[in-house]
Design a protein around this nucleic acid. Structure first.
Length: 489
RNA sequence: CGGGGCGUAGCGCAGUCCGGUUAGCGCACCUGCGUUGGGAGCAGGGGGCCGCAGGUUCGAAUCCUGCCGCCCCGACCA
């Protein structure tokens, strides 16, 4: 075990916190529930953001920005949405402070500066955006609107955890407007697939694509499409959601368009988002007791070169050549020339930070025309010829990416259990964890009962669920397909 | 919002029960020596409103009262 990192077996959530902090990703801040994202963690987020942004643009979306504040009257317009978020909203009530006459050097809220109307700090932006869309949409010719925004939102959560659930978090939210129901549904499903592709191909995190049950659906949505990942401790993580909003927001904000027959119709909507929570998912999918393990495609540093024992002219020259070749291939490489720290310390540090490939360049191997190469994911070490090294590394990065994904898939397969009776259901949820595939009668009552008895919830009704006759694992009532249950973050 | 725990140096902690020299240890940091193929070592050094505010006392990190903050476990949630 690494210095100062609690092992996963000992205490999984402490392990998680240790990783985030010791790998310099993020820290708690002076603000309750809000984190400071440190440069290394933010570099990871920037890489994720860059890929997602590219994928959004490839599917026809453009970026825009809407205000942080939502006037209360707009926020409450869509009742279900407002009700769903009401109890976790931060609210701005005043716009000025003044010197406290009773306490020198202290400030107080100026009671004379009360706002006419309170401003809600956005927990999500449907309200402010749909209020704006009303002015943008008159005709079917104005549709579709395909907009994304990168933003911060605030949800005043009772209990927070770095990246997984913070009071303020960074995310993107797509908000689209369409002239037909079918087009909006297609859009929502398309974005679910974009998220799934990103999770699997870049994060190497396998996800189940599915639909949410009524009770788990986004407040104000007609249908919520989700991607669900499975963490190493057997708990599920909702990694991204895409909502078909029907005409709910169009009706709430009176957004209509003239169709080709010049008849007024309400606009159809979607919204979809992923957040910095993905970083938590990334950590809990791949990392080990030595620290982070990052997939090559997202790692801020893909290859680190360590001079052994320390930089000198010969080693620098060899390193410079390798660096030039790697950079020519677009590989992110760092040469650690810190003379104060010894190689062993650096090895441990970069393992902690999850750098996929480490090269050790030293006199001994160099004389044989070789360098030492270590893989972070498998901890394997081997000597590799300097000749053709860049090509070798380019391939190896892809191999690591694939291997990490495959290991995560194997883990999920092993932790997915098909169950047909409730005793087994309880036993599996309690002792084995992971996904349980079981029949469900489709009622909210059953879902609620199961949650009370086992703490497991319906994560989704998988898109690829096979239609088959069955009996609900709890009530015995008829069921048409299996759904996935799990304890969730 | 319920249950538990903790606030002492940048970090991690001891000391608090049972009040008493100048508040201590490890890591980190600074200076120097030096070492280097897996987190070396040695010597010297700097850094504290002991969470905050009251109280008891000759004397408080330690006892009493009030407050504040943070963490963990539940219920709620991306």
């Amino acid at each position: 075990m690494s210095k100062g990192i609690t092992s996963r077996g000992e205490n999984y959530s402490q392990w998680y916190t240790d990783i985030v902090k010791k790998a310099q990703m993020a820290d708690n801040s002076a603000v309750r529930g809000c984190m400071v994202i440190k440069p290394y963690g933010f570099a990871l987020w920037e890489n994720m953001k860059a890929e997602l942004d590219r994928m959004f643009k490839e599917t026809g979306h453009v970026n825009a920005y809407f205000p942080l504040f939502v006037p209360k009257s707009l926020f409450e317009a869509e009742e279900k949405n407002a009700e769903g978020f009401a109890k976790e909203c931060a609210v701005v009530t005043h716009y000025r402070l003044k010197n406290d006459p009773n306490q020198k050097g202290k400030l107080m809220v100026d009671p004379d500066a009360k706002l006419e109307e309170e401003l809600v700090v956005r927990p999500t932006s449907e309200a402010i955006i749909w209020n704006t869309y009303r002015d943008w949409i008159q005709s079917h010719r104005d549709l579709p609107i395909l907009i994304n925004q990168w933003a911060n939102v605030v949800r005043w959560e009772m209990r927070t955890r770095l990246f997984l659930r913070t009071a303020e978090f960074l995310w993107q939210e797509g908000h689209t407007a369409h002239s037909t129901e079918a087009e909006a549904i297609e859009e929502a499903q398309r974005m679910q697939e974009v998220y799934a592709t990103f999770a699997e191909e870049f994060m190497a995190m396998p996800v189940v694509r599915g639909r949410k049950s009524d009770s788990e659906r986004f407040a104000g949505a007609e249908d919520t499409y989700t991607i669900e990942a499975l963490m190493q401790d057997g708990k599920a993580l909702q990694a991204g959601t895409s909502h078909f909003l029907g005409q709910n927001f169009a009706k709430a904000f009176d957004v209509k368009f003239a169709n080709t027959n010049n008849r007024e119709e309400y606009v159809w909507a979607t919204s979809w988002g992923v957040s910095t929570r993905l970083i938590g998912g990334l950590i809990m999918t791949h990392s080990d007791d030595e620290g982070l393990v990052l997939p090559p495609r997202l790692a801020p540093i893909q290859v680190v070169i360590i001079p052994i024992p320390k930089p000198n002219e010969v080693i620098d020259a060899a390193a410079d050549k390798v660096i030039a070749e790697l950079k020519a291939k677009g590989i992110r490489v760092k040469y650690d020339v810190d003379k104060k720290k010894r190689p062993g310390f650096k090895f441990a540090q970069y393992e902690l930070q999850g750098v996929p490939i480490r090269l050790g360049i030293g006199k001994r191997d160099l004389e044989n025309g070789e360098v030492e190469l270590a893989r972070r994911d498998t901890k394997e070490k081997q000597n590799v010829p300097v000749e053709g090294l860049a090509d070798y590394i380019e391939n190896l990065l892809e191999t690591i990416q694939k291997d990490m994904f495959q290991r995560a898939i194997d883990f999920r397969t092993e932790k997915t259990t098909v169950v047909d009776d409730f005793d087994t259901f309880k036993d599996v949820i309690e002792n084995k964890g992971g996904f349980v595939s079981a029949h469900w009668d489709g009622t909210e009552e059953t879902e609620q009962k199961i949650k009370e008895l086992t703490k497991a919830t319906i994560r989704c009704i998988p898109n690829d669920a096979v239609m088959e006759e069955g009996k609900c694992v709890f009530s015995g009532a008829p069921s048409k397909c299996r759904v996935l249950f799990a304890k969730a973050y």
